[in-house]
Amino acid sequence: MTIDVMLPYYGDVAMMKAAVDSVLSQTDRDFRLTIVDDRYPDESLPAYFAGLTADDSRVRYFRNEQNLGANGNYRKCLSLIEHEYVVIMGADDIMLPNYLETVCRGFTDPAVSIVQPGVEVIDENGSVYRPLGDKVKDYLRRRAVGDSSDAVLAGEAVAKSLITGDWLYFPSVAWRSDAIRKHSFREQYDVVQDLALAMDIVMDGGRMMVLNTVCFRYRRHRESDSSVRALDGRRFAEERAFFDECVRDFQQLGWQKAARAARLHASSRLHALTLAPKVIDKRMWSGLQKLATHAVKP
């Protein structure tokens, strides 16, 4: 099966090239790599991308006429999907050589719309590490999957699990194309747009295959856009708006346990509390007030 590998790009050039190389090094050669450049300012890029597309007919390159931002560029990628399955990869992440063959195995069940494979976390230097947040993700994933090495999850159970704590690694997730195009990314979100997409598919009856095989390296930057948004409180304002939407959506479906989990959003509150010392150290007093409010507000 051919998989569309979408690479929305804006950022470090060397990391992007490593990401591209990891796609081209897959053991499963049946893919289409599409790079969508959100107008990153680097004069070396035109020659590099021209060489890529000339050397390999499976590679396409597009440069946006104007900068769309992360959410807009994700939606641009969706408009370019040509095949039945797709992954929207981070431009600083790494596919291990077995990635495509692994996620293809997850789609052998025709009811599956989302495949989450096993993931390693790396830092900005490429070293494997496991910060506290990722240890929590591991715990929540194990609770959802149980003792099985691979599992298919669906309905209120997976909605409740993900809203308690998002243990997905969005750039590593493979999607059935008709499901992701049907729901797309909610335009109002910049941090939780991936969780919102997964939740929309689950609420529409889509199933998720969780695979134990490690085949992807997700890069965790210590000062990423999402971490900066967390310190100044913007991330949690967005999360709270999303949780409020989920409460209403879950109640309409009769998913009362998931609605209670969305209302509580325990891991999000705990995340805000763990950031308080860093915010105090940086003297970001406005951010501290927002974190405290998020942590304790009903």
Score class of each variant (00 low, 15 high):
A272V: 05
Q289I: 01
A295H: 04
R105K: 09
T274L: 12
N73Q: 04
D138G: 06
E124Y: 02
R141A: 04
V158T: 10
R234H: 11
G146E: 05
V152N: 11
L100T: 02
M1V: 11
T164K: 03
G106L: 05
K182L: 14
W167N: 06
P117C: 01
Y10C: 00
F236T: 04
A50C: 08
V20D: 10
A50T: 10
M95A: 14
A144S: 15
P8D: 03
M208S: 05
H294A: 07
M203R: 15
R240L: 10
E239Q: 14
R181E: 13
D147K: 07
D55E: 12
R229Q: 09
D109P: 03
D123K: 04
A237H: 06
V112E: 04
D93F: 00
F250D: 09
Q116F: 10
I88R: 06
E223Q: 14
L24F: 07
Y48S: 00
S22V: 05
A144Q: 08
C77D: 06
A179M: 13
V228F: 01
D204G: 14
I122L: 09
A198I: 04
M16Q: 15
F107P: 08
I81T: 05
K135R: 15
V158M: 11
D134F: 15
A18P: 03
G133L: 14
